[in-house]
Amino acid sequence: MNKISASVFAASVATALSLVASVPASAADATKEKCYGVALKGQNDCAAGPGTTCAGTSKIDHQQNAWKLVPAGTCEAMKTPNGHGSLTQGPAPA
């Protein structure tokens, strides 16, 4: 069998960690943010809060606990009939 000693493991893990540290974290995620309260009915991305399962399940337009991925920095500038988009989750619809 291919037995590997603890010291070889330690060296490999150390190299792996240095490789991880040398590459910046995925830049893609920095360009999107979760924006609550701006999605139209049924057009939310994942997790519309308690009572819903996932994407496309929000019950009303601009539901405040349903979010949509939008370009970073644009969420709070979005105006809906209920006010601006929010980076924090709002209450479930009554």
Partner: peptide
């Protein structure tokens, strides 16, 4: 197989 590269 390169353990370091795969783990990273």
């Amino acid at each position: 197989f390169d353990l370091s590269a795969n783990l990273a």
